[in-house]
């Protein structure tokens, strides 16, 4: 491990590798991964996203890259770039499916083989940060990702939760997972934290409030911040727009920008 690893292969020029994890599904891992990537790019960083959610890859849609053909070069699979500046590179299982409605009905061993390839065979080139978006849980994909990335480096994991106890309960288990496999926790993000009614500005805590921050306190992990529920953010993701560019005045925008800044500081301090 370490930056001076000369055998890092395709990850040799990747400065930082960050996993986005959550024990719970649907808490916004892919959303946060996408928005963090966009925020990092606005901060002038070169960013890559590796989407290892084999059964439900959402990132291609969120970045509206469609279903491009993935090409091979000498160095491996060429990631898909969101624009000509090549500031944001993406590799997802979604690109390899023939039919977008196809279910990837695979058991563990087959998934592990693909993840091994994913991690080692993508020609990322130079990147400041590689974000790895994972499926929910603590199972095959997670072990495979950690095992394969560890050969190079893993800076740590950002854990995403929603405020309710049902969700933080699952994320507690994810913290245990990180400790067991030796992945440092960079911090916890509380997503879907409150909803401000656009009609009367009354804030409703649809999924309760404060659970993420409390979890961070109990488990002694850094708290990165809250991201409120924001219909603008959901529709922007549906349309694959760049929320970070389109809605700079929204509350979610500020929250994500702050989280991005804290994350960068943590990475650079390490």
């Amino acid at each position: 491990m370490g930056e001076n690893n000369t055998e890092g292969g395709n990850l040799a020029q990747v400065q930082h590798v960050v996993l986005v994890l959550s024990g719970k599904g649907g808490v916004g891992k892919s959303t946060l991964t996408t928005e963090l990537a966009l925020a990092l790019r606005h901060a002038g960083k070169k960013v890559g996203i590796l989407d290892v959610d084999l059964c439900g890859p959402s990132i291609p849609r969120m970045l509206s890259v469609g279903r491009p053909d993935v090409h091979q070069c000498d160095g491996g699979w060429v990631p898909v770039y969101t624009d000509a500046s090549k500031g944001l590179a993406l590799m997802s299982i979604g690109f390899l499916l023939e039919n977008p409605d196809d279910a990837v009905v695979w058991r563990g061993p087959k998934k592990n083989a693909l993840i091994g390839q994913f991690v080692s065979d993508v020609a990322w080139g130079e990147l400041d940060v590689l974000l790895v978006d994972t499926p929910p849980g603590t199972s095959d994909e997670h072990l495979a990702v950690v095992e394969n990335l560890r050969k190079h480096r893993v800076d740590g994991a950002v854990l995403v939760t929603t405020p309710q106890a049902v969700s933080t309960g699952d994320v507690r288990r994810e913290i245990t997972f990180c400790r067991k496999v030796g992945v440092p926790i960079l911090g916890i993000v509380e997503n879907m934290s409150g909803f401000v009614c656009p009609h009367c500005s009354e804030c409703s805590n649809i999924f309760s409030k404060g659970g993420g921050e409390e979890l961070a306190k109990i488990t002694g992990t850094p708290f990165l911040g809250c991201v409120p529920l924001d219909p603008l953010l959901s529709s922007s993701l549906e349309e694959g727009g760049d929320f970070m560019k389109t809605f700079p005045e929204s509350a979610a925008f500020n929250a994500i920008t702050n989280i991005c800044r804290t994350l960068l500081e943590t990475l650079q301090a390490a």
């Binding site: 909803f195 009614c197 656009p198 009609h199 009367c200 009354e202 409703s204 649809i206 529920l229 219909p231 959901s234 529709s235 549906e238 349309e239």
Partner: peptide
């Protein structure tokens, strides 16, 4: 959909765009 308990207006927090 979500009905605001204060003003009773409905918001589509997770909009059915399709």
């Amino acid at each position: 959909g979500f009905v605001c308990p204060n003003c009773k207006n409905t918001s589509q927090i997770f909009p059915p765009t399709t």
